[in-house]
Design a protein around this nucleic acid. Structure first.
Lengths: 227, 227
DNA sequence: GCCGTACCGAACCGTACAGTACGGCACTCC
DNA sequence: GGAGTGCCGTACTGTACGGTTCGGTACGGC
């Protein structure tokens, strides 16, 4: 697990990286809110319920986050802040190391996307798409999730891919298209199925096996110049 | 467009296939409801609003569909009934014809999944996942969508794949896994992006090109015995 | 001791919306 | 014609929940 840190256990680590977005009290409240969101969906997250569950007052909620949408947005930002950025030092020097790095990425991607937290957040964002995009001034939740979550993961993968291309481990034309292929091979229709509540998810070993297979297929497609 | 029929134009075709699920009057109401759902999301679909827009009374709505969730479920069934089932006669005899059939499937899949109607229905179903699955007795919306929509499409594809295997056009072990690969190559992350409101969708030509590329990759992976 | 700040807890308000009740119209069947 | 049926339109009820207000408590600084 190298992309995200899902555990909401004791965050007593007083490290300064605790994301200056919110105070520690607010972070605690957001953690509670996220838990409520994960088990019960958006409708289960009422301001009164959150206030009671988090032992704070509604007044404070509104002071800190503005309104209910502000709370939702804060949850997304809060969780997204846990996503690790690109690790610039990931520059495997041999084809084997490159494949290992790809496989690690694939395993991470599967684990993250199928985690309860990610599913809940995706459901939340998807449910907040209205007719007109980006109504008003705020970017609109889904966009935040894409920017802070998906894009960072994508950046890590594309970094890896372009590195592999420079080293002649793989060959491709367009990085974005190639990433889409890699993503598709790894995820397939598992994500949408999970989002729709098709629970029979495979266990962790199954995920690893699947990740390995996807990477094999990806390398088959892009190993020698097949263009 | 061979999988679904998206137009909600004059359904004056008195053909008997009009799905005996609902009366024609009810179908008309559901068509209006679907339109409201597509442009405005779930929150825009209120019983009062639907009654006014469809020129019917709330009383009738409740008589026909039970409650609001019944209306939503009916919408899903209504639209899913438009999805064509497996075409058993699709048995291409040459590798070229097989590839053509695969490409047609890919194009259909892309067009359907990225259509406004499909996106709205998927958003609706995804938004209705509560903590516990299948609460009570009803299967729960998402399951309906999966059963009536995704499964039929999947059945068509698997039918085609197994046929291709029998004819030695392609080789694979597990049909479900192979379908997942095909799906992933075709869709990539386009679906989740679209669901999240990442509007920059490619045009129809781009979709066709993408479909062709995905099929090429799929055949590369499964053409000779690389088991 | 006094004020300002931050917070809790609870009561309160306004509204949107699901669901119900009822009167009235059109049509059909006897 | 009268009774029954199906439906429209409107008005009504109940309630859940977002948002606000306010009294009360703890703390820190002057």
């Amino acid at each position: 697990m190298a992309i995200a840190n899902d555990n909401q256990s004791a965050d007593t680590s007083a490290q300064p990286h605790e994301s200056a977005e919110f105070s520690s009290r607010q972070n605690a409240v957001l953690a509670v809110a996220l838990t409520m969101l994960v088990e019960g969906g958006e409708k289960a997250l009422t301001t009164a319920g959150l206030a009671k569950a988090a032992n704070c007052s509604k007044e404070s909620l509104y002071k800190w986050f503005g309104d209910r949408d502000g709370i939702l947005a804060a949850i997304v930002v809060y969780q997204a802040s846990k996503v690790r950025g690109v690790d610039e030092r990931a520059t495997p020097a041999t084809p084997e190391a490159f494949k290992t790095a790809l496989t690690a990425f694939a395993e991470d991607l599967l684990a993250v996307l199928l985690s309860d937290t990610s599913l809940a957040l995706n459901r939340l964002s998807i449910g907040h798409i209205r007719g007109e995009p980006t109504r008003g001034d705020n970017p609109g939740l889904g966009a935040v999730l894409v920017d802070k979550g998906k894009r960072r993961i994508e950046a890590r993968a594309i970094h890896l891919l372009t590195h592999g291309k420079r080293q002649r481990f793989i060959a491709f034309d367009d990085a974005a298209t190639t990433y889409s292929t890699l993503y598709g091979l790894i995820i397939g229709d598992a994500h949408i199925r999970a989002l729709l509540g098709d629970d029979p998810q495979i266990d962790e070993d199954g995920q690893k096996a699947h990740a390995a297979r996807a990477v094999d297929q990806f390398l088959t497609l892009h190993t020698q110049s097949d263009f």
